[in-house]
């Protein structure tokens, strides 16, 4: 949905000039809401705009209207189940309240959406434990390493000491990629050779972090398809070994989901959280083309809160997720 038309965010630092900028280009920081709105206003294609159009065009609540809304939601990757849930809810409520006009209908739609995505939200904050360990997991190519780079910058700005751990010893040059991020942000960096056992990388890094009194440890794991049983077992081992050094770690286990992913995100979410205790979701690539309806489905089907959303390639574009602002931004004119 929400075609925030903007430059790419993940992986690339896609300025046309090869000099890769770390600092955001926009000196004046806009509020979250205005930035979201900004992006939305650039598009005529967001689901909400289209739903609104349809509602205004039809003027009256009817089955055809609901069918059209259904189509729009499905085309935004909301998924059949969640779409049906939304439609049923709108049908029931609009009858119960005797809604016939477009304006109250839009309000109802907003309300129903909010109802689904608003639950147990919280912010990603560094707790009392030291070091505070955050492990980042997900399938290949969702933007784990980039997310870690951005998180590191964020925590460093809070005057916390940060260590990045390169536990992706599998993908070619993944360690290098993270190292570049550590150089840019000034975070400490722990690595071993490519192909090293990721669990042992974590073991050593956490011991070193303990002795150096590091505040935050960010662990970058290799992207793995959730269907690979052995790779998921490897991930479980990493988590077990982390606990050997710090029994209550990792304090956060974040799964990074790509908003352009379709219904498979549900499967990723399910299988990853069965393997390791996932505490939060980071949804990347919500800008640009992504319809991101999958965010609504993920909120509907899982209790794990969405902690960050990526809406652009700038460091500040990794934002806290706020359901009501989110829905408001969707409906903003």
């Amino acid at each position: 949905m929400f075609f925030w038309k903007k430059k790419p965010e993940e992986e690339t630092q896609p300025q046309p000039a090869p000099s890769v900028p770390l600092e955001p280009e926009n000196p004046e920081k806009k509020g979250f809401f205005s930035r979201l709105k900004d992006r939305l206003s650039k598009t005529k294609d967001s689901i909400i705009t289209r739903v609104k159009e349809v509602i205004r065009l039809r003027g009256k609540v009817s089955e055809e209207l609901l069918d059209e809304i259904e189509e729009i939601l499905i085309q935004a990757d909301v998924g059949v189940d969640t779409t049906m849930k939304i439609i049923d809810r709108i049908r029931k409520e609009s009858r119960a309240r005797g809604i016939e006009d477009s304006e109250p209908m839009i309000d109802l739609f907003k309300e129903v959406l909010l109802e689904i995505i608003q639950k147990n939200e919280r912010l990603l904050e560094i707790g009392a434990a030291r070091p505070y360990v955050i492990a980042v997991v997900g399938v290949n190519g969702t933007g784990k390493t980039t997310t870690i780079g951005k998180l590191a910058k964020h925590f460093l700005e809070q005057k916390l000491s940060v260590m990045m751990v390169a536990a992706d010893t599998f993908r070619a040059a993944a360690v290098d990629q993270l190292e570049i991020w550590s150089e840019r942000t000034g975070a400490q960096f722990a690595k071993q050779a490519m192909g090293a056992d990721p669990a042992s990388v974590c073991f050593d890094a956490l011991n070193s972090a303990k002795s150096k009194n590091v505040d935050v440890v960010l662990i970058d794991t290799a992207g793995r398809l959730h269907t690979k049983v052995n790779l998921m077992a490897e991930l479980q081992k990493v988590f077990r070994v982390i606990k050997k050094v710090i029994p209550d770690a990792p304090h956060e286990a974040l799964i990074v989901l790509d908003a352009t992913t379709g219904q498979n995100a549900i499967s990723q979410m399910k299988i990853f959280s069965e393997a390791v205790p996932i505490t939060g979701v980071v949804m990347t690539k919500l800008d640009g083309t992504a319809k991101g309806g999958i965010l609504i489905a993920i909120r509907d089907l899982f209790d794990v809160p969405i902690l960050k959303i990526g809406i652009g390639e700038q460091i500040d574009d990794l934002r806290d997720f706020n359901p009501s602002e989110f829905v408001d931004a969707l409906f903003a004119e």
Binding site: V20, A172, A173, I180
Partner: peptide, 18 residues
């Protein structure tokens, strides 16, 4: 020709070597 993503060139070099 991926000159933007950090370490993308390195990645290709490693892949090429493999």
């Amino acid at each position: 020709c991926d000159v933007y993503r950090p370490a993308a060139i390195n990645q290709l070099k490693v892949v090429g070597e493999q």
